[in-house]
Design a protein around this nucleic acid. Structure first.
Length: 887
RNA sequence: GCCCGAGUGGCGGAAUUGGUAGACGCGCUGGAUUCAAAAUCCAGUUUCAGCAAUGAAGUGCGGGUUCGAUUCCCGCCUCGGGUACCA
């Protein structure tokens, strides 16, 4: 009998598909399990070996959960809007829908060739009009929602109270007020613009090196444009709070917390000397107000023209103009060198009553806090640096006391160094204003100063967040059109639900214009709208970013064919939340934050039943590959490398090369195509190898010999268990039963803990055992097929059928562990002397401690270690160790 | 700079409520089978010393706690990821 994997893999895949073995419907008699993979963008390159890693993990869990009696929802779909299809359209004229369709078909074929247990009747595609209809529907809900700060809840815009003073200003002011409160809001915004992509991008898409996440170039700059913004900062506190209850990797939670960037402090108003103006600053350290010796405002600050004196005007203007031309990147790249100019104007420190100079400097950002700071150079490194550069006085108000050595403390006290840690307040009292915090702790100091400010109406406790509005429009063709109409009279309105979806117009121009107009602006007929009164309007020409479709796809899977509503409430109530979500860590702040935001809005509106979408999140690690470089560090493609005695050499030059681990890339010629692996070793081998490589969350390099290793294991399984001579009827050997039941137990536990690599080891141990004993019973073989089934489902089905069973083994219940087979009646104790293991001693499991001590010390092997020594004590840990302490 | 995570044989990796370090696999070595090879099966494989029995060292580095530390504590080093004039 041959191990003809390609034949039987195809056979069983067809069986599963034809019989809809993995379809699932609401069934309240069973516990539910919703297991989600991050759906792929179907690129032209096809599946990467990284995709099947997460997919196999979820597949194993789903198959196991089904066997354990769960009703499992396990869907797959395509996140199919995106740049590559559009760029291909620009180059070739092929409509993105055609490219997308082709790529989806290829991805589906590849994924199906892996035998993953998806319910294919639930397949979705974000570009499908029947899907984007509901993305637009949700956008309309965002548009019609405002955030009630008091209730910390999104509410219908119709319930928005209009303040009396706004009402008095008339209808226009009211409309403007309402617009400003919507969660989706159309506004002039300073945005990131990518010159390569010719489109705006979100803050989250601009990487810290100034490059654009989508294209990788650094052609990103600031522009002012009218754009759609989603007001995610309103949900900052909710998004922060929600993290606590989630079973997510702490690293991802931390990244979201950092991104939201909550800080608590106070806003403080400073009198501007000689002007009837107050300058408001935000500080996290109001307790250091006594040490504020100057102020800084951002170059974009509104009050700048009023503050600046006549003689300083020219200088300040030059500075602000230069700052405006600099991109944020330049501003931060030159971060080491502080620049700034004095405005000629002074503010009054409310505690000391002293005049302190107001400067303009670009290290203060308009976008955070109030765009102005009080500078305390003695206790803030940036302020200190600035003060030293421009020779501004430094007043120390916190004595580090014992925390700094004498020399450093002396410098700090004299204003020649900066101290940012806690300490003891000094110079922090002024009887004239009635405030003294000397001797207080930092916590008390902050509270006392805030209270003082509050009572005098000079300031108040304030919370700030780093998270900014989410820039939600793109100047692209291949995205969801906004269901928005701009009317000739300036009114903006949303398309009625009954007129959804707003489909993309046909066009043959996909190129965005230099000016930033979307390609949709070319679709003249599509643009024109007229209402029943003959009023003319123009459709919104921007499209939504790729994130839109992925923000809610997990909800559509629940009821993917519903024409009446995005999903049925009953079904949503049954399936949500997602119990397990597996995908790459690259979405830690983008997709996962956006999607939580949408979900919370939907929850507030009563559209979904859970506050959070994804209960448990797990990040698969990246699959890398070995690569080679010369001594000078230049990379060598893998086809130019030969191995000799564990060392690597260049085929042509003969130079010894260094083996490194790097991302798979075309340029290194080390990309592994899953199709080739399936063709050469089978889907089961690919699945098993990816799980056997190491822990799921670890980054690990691919090796072809590793694939051969698991392929060899599968062959051993097949040749042993498919051979009728090995599989007999009758009574099973006790040792075999023990190993079998250890295997059932270990594999089950390891799946629950997502330790797939060690589960596979255990199955290998079992198989090795079978080879040793040469014969097993049919019952043992069938039980093993059930245990193997989640991992190597095709082979398991084949074996199951060979034993004459009806398909399918994947529908069989998980075998029960019989603990009685696992009971040991003796244990082989390691006997150590002073912690060093010296010999082993097999003793009955229930032997009293005294007897164990006696047996160990009287053993002949022990005499050597006891000779001439005195026994201090003997430690016996039952079923663990015997340790004799000698002196 | 700050916040996470990780350092274990030639390689991927096992083992942590503190208890036999190196499971399982790859690679390598030897053997069986074969005219031969592939494939397969069996055995060995942390390093050093030794024919061996055995002994010594050993989980990034330096300390500490403990009968006992890969595991806990303190101080470093290296690598990976995130983030950064956020006041």
């Amino acid at each position: 009998m041959d191990f003809n994997f390609s034949e039987f893999e195809k056979k069983w895949q067809n069986h599963w598909l034809d019989n809809k073995v993995f379809s699932s419907e609401v069934d309240t008699s069973k516990p539910k399990f919703y297991c989600l993979d991050m759906f792929p963008y179907p690129s032209g390159a096809g599946l990467h070996v990284g995709h099947p890693e997460g997919y196999t993990a979820t597949d194993i869990i789903c198959r196991y959960k089904r066997a354990k009696g769960f009703n499992v929802l396990h869907p797959m779909g395509w996140d199919a809007f995106g740049l590559p299809a559009e760029q291909y359209a620009i180059q070739t004229g092929t409509h993105p829908a055609i490219t997308t369709q082709k790529n989806c078909d290829n991805f589906r074929r590849q994924i199906q060739s892996l035998g993953l247990s998806y319910d294919w009747d639930r397949e979705i595609n974000t570009t499908d009009p029947s899907y984007l209809k509901w993305t637009q529907w949700i956008f309309i809900r965002l548009y019609n929602t405002w955030f009630d700060e008091k209730l910390q809840k999104g509410r219908s815009i119709e319930e928005l109270p209009i303040p009396a003073d706004i009402k008095n200003q008339g209808q226009e002011a009211v409309t403007k007020y309402i617009e400003s409160r919507r969660l989706a809001n159309y506004d002039n915004a300073q945005v990131w613009w990518c010159n390569t992509c010719k489109t705006v991008c979100a803050n989250e898409e601009v990487l810290n090196d100034g490059s654009h996440e989508k294209c990788g170039t650094k052609e990103v700059e600031r522009r002012y444009l009218k754009q759609w913004m989603l007001r995610i900062p309103h949900y900052a506190e909710r998004l922060l709070d929600g993290l606590a209850q989630l079973d997510w990797p702490e690293g991802v939670k931390d990244m979201q917390r950092n991104w939201i960037g909550k800080s608590t402090g106070a806003e403080v108003d400073f009198e501007v000397d000689g002007l009837n103006e107050r300058l408001r600053v935000y500080t996290t350290r109001p307790d250091t107000l006594f040490g504020a010796t100057y102020m800084v405002i951002a170059p974009e600050h509104k009050l700048i023209n009023e503050i600046v004196t006549e003689e300083k005007k020219a200088e300040v203007e030059t500075y602000t103009r230069t700052a405006a031309l600099k991109s944020d990147l330049d501003r931060t790249e030159l971060s080491k060198e502080k620049t700034g100019v004095f405005t000629g104007c002074y503010a009054i420190n409310p505690l000391t009553g002293k005049q302190i100079p107001i400067w303009v400097a670009d290290y203060v950002l308009m976008g955070y806090g109030t765009g102005a700071i009080m500078a305390v150079p003695a206790h803030d490194t940036r302020d200190f640096e600035f003060a030293k550069t421009f020779d501004i006085p430094v007043t120390c108000i916190l004595d580090p006391k014992g925390q700094a050595d004498a020399e450093l403390r002396e410098k700090i006290l004299n204003g020649n160094d900066c101290w940012t840690e806690d300490g003891e307040y000094i110079n922090s009292a002024n009887t004239d204003v009635g405030l003294d915090i000397n001797g207080l702790t930092k916590k008390e100091g902050i509270a006392t100063v805030i209270k003082w400010l509050d009572e005098r109406n000079l300031g108040k406790a304030t919370v700030n967040y780093k998270i900014r509005d989410w820039l939600f429009s793109r100047q692209r063709y291949w995205g969801e059109p906004f269901p928005i109409i701009h009317w000739e009279d300036g009114e903006i309105s949303v398309v009625e639900d009954k007129d959804l979806p707003v489909e993309l117009p046909k066009t043959d121009k996909y190129q965005p214009s230099e000016s930033g107009e979307s390609p949709l602006a070319n679709a003249t007929e599509w643009l024109k709208v007229t209402d029943e009164n003959g009023r003319k309007g123009r459709r919104e020409t921007n499209t939504m970013p790729q994130w839109a479709g992925s923000c809610w796809y997990y909800l559509r899977y629940i009821d993917p064919k519903n024409d009446e509503e995005p999903f049925s409430k009953v079904k949503e109530n049954y399936w949500m939340p997602v119990d397990l979500y597996i995908g790459g860590a690259e979405h830690a702040v983008l997709h996962l934050l956006y999607s939580r935001f949408w979900h919370k809005v939907l929850f507030d509106l009563g559209i979904v039943s859970t506050d959070e979408p994804y209960q448990k999140l797990y990040n698969q690690g990246m699959i890398l590959a070995f690569a080679y470089e010369t001594a000078s560090g230049s990379k060598v493609t893998s086809d130019m490398v030969e191995e000799k005695d564990g060392k690597y050499f260049h085929i042509e030059t003969g130079d010894e090369l260094k083996q490194i681990v790097a991302k798979m890339s075309k340029s290194l010629k080390n990309v592994v195509n899953p199709d080739d692996v399936v063709a050469n070793y089978g889907a089961d081998s690919l699945r098993l190898y990816e799980m056997f490589m190491g822990p799921l969350d670890a980054t690990k390099p691919w090796t072809d010999t590793g694939v051969k290793g698991v392929f060899n294991f599968l062959k051993r399984v097949f040749y042993f268990f498919a051979d009728k001579d090995n599989v007999t009827e009758g009574e099973e050997n006790k040792e075999t039963l023990k190993v079998l039941h250890q295997t059932i137990k270990k594999v089950g536990q390891d799946i629950e803990e997502m330790k797939f690599n060690t589960a596979i080891s255990q199955m290998m141990i079992f198989t090795n055992h079978c080879y040793k004993v040469k014969k097993v019973t049919r019952e043992t073989a069938e039980t093993f097929a059930k245990v193997l089934a989640p991992y190597a489902p095709h082979l398991a089905e084949e074996l199951w059928a060979i034993y004459g069973n009806e398909p399918a083994v994947c529908q069989q219940p998980w075998p029960r562990v019989n603990e009685s087979y696992l009971v040991e009646n003796s244990f082989e104790y390691p006997v150590s002397f002073n912690g060093k293991m010296r010999f082993k001693l097999e003793l009955p499991i229930d032997m009293p401690k005294e007897d164990i001590e006696k047996a160990a010390t009287e053993h002949e092997n022990a005499q050597k270690w006891l000779d001439g020594k005195q026994i201090v004590k003997i430690i016996v840990v039952p079923k663990k160790i015997i340790n004799v302490v000698v002196r």
